[in-house]
Write a protein that binds this DNA or RNA. Structure first.
Lengths: 126, 126
DNA sequence: CTAAAACCTGACACTGACGTCAGAGGCAAG
DNA sequence: CTTGCCTCTGACGTCAGTGTCAGGTTTTAG
């Protein structure tokens, strides 16, 4: 599989895949002419990388924990790293939940102003 | 209250506060000599701004929805904006939850390798 | 009164995950 | 063979929130 196929199937840019390789997150074999080739597994790996980026992990952190995913084995350090990131994500979820609740409160308040006031009614179709 | 006090109490940098003002997120009155002065409410406002930043909103988006918080009134547009951001945060929470579950699965797998293998035992105190 | 600490504006530096462009080579189809 | 798309490397650009420095004024503490 060539880089363009992986990019399409994982819904990322070609540039991103080269960057992942540069960061040591994604390996490829090279054809004689230097073109990258990937296995099917690469697509899933890229999706995992993407979700970790989405959770706010840096390339460096991902690079640290991916080998442990590959090897299916963890050292005390890698377990600590994994747990630390999981906890960070949990805290992030908690914060986001609070923020969403704040937004909900704002929506509540602004949608029901003093009844005697003029205010714009529900949007018809937006 | 001067800028340094607000910074301390809201746990942000002085630079950040000046930036918020520049972006139209936080107003201040100026003393004759040009120094910024804030009310108590500024601290809470800064915390709100921070949590919105934390949820991935841009200055621009925050600038769009803060006036509606202030006015306690919403237009159809602002309601749509608020709802859209709330939904975005909800999706973000859902994604983060999935990612955390993936990490949990990885932790599970790597913490219990094939029993017949040598592997490092539980960390004592980390 | 004076020194330290806080404040001001303006501007450039930085970070990280890419976008984008240039210039050159590779590969299947007609 | 050549046309057109894909790929390569290298390098600079971007964005957004903030750090940081310079050079100067203001406020506060002793």
């Amino acid at each position: 599989m060539r880089i363009g196929d992986v990019a399409t199937r994982a819904a990322v840019s070609v540039r991103a895949l080269r960057y992942y390789e540069e960061q040591g997150l994604l390996a490829s074999t090279r054809s004689g002419s230097g073109q990258r080739h990937y296995t099917e597994a690469a697509v899933e790996r890229v999706k995992l990388i993407q979700s970790l980026y989405g959770a706010g992990l840096s390339s460096r952190t991902i690079a640290d924990l991916l080998p442990c995913v590959d090897a299916q084995v963890s050292t005390p350090e890698s377990r600590a790293l994994l747990a630390a990131e999981r906890d960070r994500i949990s805290r992030q979820i908690a914060e986001l939940t609070l923020t969403r609740d704040k937004l909900d409160a704002i929506i509540e308040q602004t949608s029901r102003p003093h009844p005697q006031c003029d205010y714009v009614t529900e949007p018809a179709d937006v």
